[in-house]
Design a protein around this nucleic acid. Structure first.
Lengths: 253, 253
DNA sequence: ATCTCCAAATTGGTATACCACATACCACAA
DNA sequence: TTGTGGTATGTGGTATACCAATTTGGAGAT
């Protein structure tokens, strides 16, 4: 099958050659089965509601291999990567399990996130272009309404986007990448955190303050505001989740 | 062989039981071949001088499998993890290559490190015990001489330890863990960075300032000093490495 | 009814065979 | 000599078979 695809692609190229107009192509994708399995599993795990009390955290290699129509070998290599991501845990002869993060771990992730984004914001005051800042302000204004309209689903996405924009504006790709790695683990947290009383409106105010500090090119102030903003989420999550943990019930349900 | 090891371990346990002196069992290590191969490869790669002009960055699966006396399967799973760590790159049907970080990437790692350790130091001003701080000061004093004695090898290790202590004192394991992940990539950088004129003595001064800020429990000042200290390394590396990059020579030789 | 113990099923771990693509090499022609 | 094409070989990718440890369930004893 793959062979046939390559053959037909090459055939197409030769045909183009004969006709005389050569354009060249990027040829075949380098994506291997392992990569595709990894992407699909990662997506599935992130979307899954792992904090449901009755959630099935157990993954069976042979079942998955059958569903994905691949052998266990590339599947296991994908699982190895997911394990390194901290999304699953592979216990020898016991099974593969999606990991449930503890409240403590979630809080630590938020702290790390605060550290990274705060530094990103600091750098951004120096390297971000005026156009970047205009973009950021535009984005924040456009979506500030959705928080008032209680359209929290939309605002949640816009909120995430806001923070990603700051990370990108730092010009330091690694900061953004590392923060992304943290976000993945907080999928179940992010939206819920907003769905609480006046969190959203407070968030809008914070964002405006950050934008103004950025526009003023005030590195220290910007870094401080971003850090405090994220640490407010930290405090909020600690307060709210404690209740759930104590009741030993679903956290994200 | 592995089987024999397990057998002898179990035999030991039974013997202990019969003799009457029960000690409890760590049982067999849950370390699988994959894990052990991963550890050994990681160590080997980190120790390897990848920036030598004539360094062989190519790794051959079958050769390694033979040397390690394991099949390619666990080896490849270890390689998958190393790839996710960013230490190697697996190119389909081309080979496995140890990645050479560019100057740009090294600089970004230092920035991220600064972000993490600065936050760690900030937290430490709040949660570190007085005993922790005494320990830190003792460590710094003990090794400040080696910088003067030009015993840079020893001071380099002590220097790393100093920063790890701060990360640990934050009480946030994730910060320390993420910083560790960055350190691995900078093995070839760290020592060299010190082996330059007065870097070491300047470093000692910085450290003392950080300790004093910690002891004063001044969060903002501590965070600032740690950040500035690491960013000085950033500037230093940028200046020094640029020469090497231009000459296209060894960086860590 | 309950407990003990063993055998079969389950499950991840490992070894091995084979495939398709990449590369190097070489024969041969211009 | 130089360039072209084919072919042999090497490499990572994948599939599959088997292994060892664990779990499970039920037969048999108490």
């Amino acid at each position: 099958m793959l062979n046939a695809n390559i053959r037909s692609t090459v055939y197409q190229m030769i045909t183009n050659l004969i006709v005389g107009k050569m354009k060249l192509q990027p040829i075949v994708s380098n994506l291997t089965l392992k990569d595709r399995v990894y992407d699909r599993l990662r997506e599935a795990i992130v979307e899954m509601n792992i904090y449901q009390a009755d959630a099935d955290l157990r993954l069976d290699e042979r079942t998955m291999a059958e569903q994905l129509q691949v052998s266990r070998t590339p599947l296991r290599e994908a699982l190895t990567r997911l394990e390194r991501d901290g999304l699953i845990e592979i216990r020898a002869r016991k099974g593969v399990f999606v990991v449930r993060r503890t409240l403590e771990e979630i809080l630590e992730m938020i702290v790390a996130w605060a550290a990274l984004e705060s530094m990103a914001a600091r750098l951004a005051t120096d390297v971000a272009s005026d156009a970047d800042l205009r973009n950021l302000r535009k984005h924040a204004l456009r979506h500030s309404e959705s928080s008032a309209n209680a359209d929290l689903s939309e605002y949640s996405d816009a909120n995430i986007k806001f923070h990603q924009m700051i990370l990108d504006m730092s010009g330091c790709a690694l900061l953004a990448e590392m923060a992304d790695g943290l976000f993945v683990h907080m999928h179940a947290v992010r939206r819920r955190a907003l769905e609480e009383n006046d969190r959203a409106s407070r968030s809008v105010v914070d964002h405006m303050g950050i934008i103004e500090a950025l526009e003023a090119r005030d590195a220290d102030l910007t870094a401080q505001l971003v850090r405090e903003h994220t640490m407010r989420l930290h405090n909020h999550v600690r307060r709210v989740w404690s209740k759930f943990e104590n009741r030993r019930e679903s956290i994200a349900g």
